[in-house]
Amino acid sequence: MTGEARVEDYFALLKPSVMSLVVFTAFVGLVVAPGAINPIVALIAVLCIAIGGGASGALNMWYDSDIDAIMSRTQNRPIPAGRISRNQALVFGIVLAAFSVGVLGLATNWLAAGFLAFTIFFYVVIYTMWLKRLTPQNIVIGGAAGSFPPMIGWAAVNGTITIQSAALFLIVFLWTPPHFWALALYKQSDYGAAGVPMMPNVAGEESTKLQILVYSALLAASTLLPSFLGMAGWLYTAVAVVTGVSFTFLAWRLYRAPDGVPMRKMARNLFAYSLSYLFIVFFALLADNLLMRFGSVLS
């Protein structure tokens, strides 16, 4: 039995906190891509990527409603809380997915649209339906879905996939494991009760902390790629170095933290920092790119 669904319940299906990151990284990819795009078309492209990301979230909640009802942090989502039925979420997600892909293709190009369709498929089928309940590497492999948006934004401008757009993909891809494994370290009981094989539940805390540290160091190094590839200048480089060192330092503190409350506190601190980390890095890339363009106009 479901209650009468409200607009905010359908909005919650879109996973707005996740969608905001998807939209922002896609927007940065679109802005820094070489080439010109009409501002109205750019707005439509970003909106389509946002809707596609929301469709992925709705379909994820449709399939995962059984485990969402078990985990404390997801029990109040619209489906387990009884405000929206699984069928309503399924139809909602499918309609949004088809709409976003079709409009993006018509407004920009079919490479970008195909990329968006593949991203939705990867997140819903490869990650949600297959990997999430099968392997502790679910986040590593499945994280690719959340890493594609800046490449989609790039492709929307010039219809290409380049090493520069792949560098943006790599940053998000390497950010995903330490971000989610830090969460999993202090939410182990939730994932254990739901039967989701997250890394701490399968490999143990020590192995997870070591892998977080390794991925954090690789992430910090990857954020320097835009500088080496000529996509950014000193401002972005400085921000990337400072934030990367800070991220790695927090991962090191987590690795060295004793078990129990200190470890969970350090895991929570790293997770909290990781929430803002990508926004800071991509905002710095955006600001640096705009400054370089402004400087070239004035010179």
Rank of each mutant, 00 (worst) to 15 (best):
R133E: 01
Q137V: 03
W252M: 07
W252V: 04
G159Y: 13
Y191R: 02
A220I: 01
A257D: 04
Y255M: 10
G260Q: 08
L224D: 00
G142N: 08
V261C: 07
A220Q: 03
E205K: 07
S165T: 10
L218Q: 03
M198I: 08
Y191V: 00
K187G: 09
A232T: 09
Q211R: 09
I212R: 12
P149I: 04
A145Q: 07
G230T: 11
F173G: 00
V196I: 15
N138E: 14
L185M: 14
F228R: 06
L254C: 10
A221W: 05
K265D: 12
G244A: 06
M199S: 07
P150W: 06
V245D: 01
I141P: 06
R264E: 15
G195H: 02
I161K: 03
Q137H: 14
I161Y: 03
I171G: 01
T160P: 00
L218C: 02
R253M: 13
M151I: 02
A220K: 01
T237S: 14
K265Y: 10
I161V: 14
A156I: 10
A166K: 00
Q164K: 10
M129H: 05
L254Y: 14
I171H: 01
P149S: 07
V172Y: 04
A251P: 02
N201P: 01
S246Y: 14
T248W: 15
I141F: 14
M266N: 09
Q164R: 11
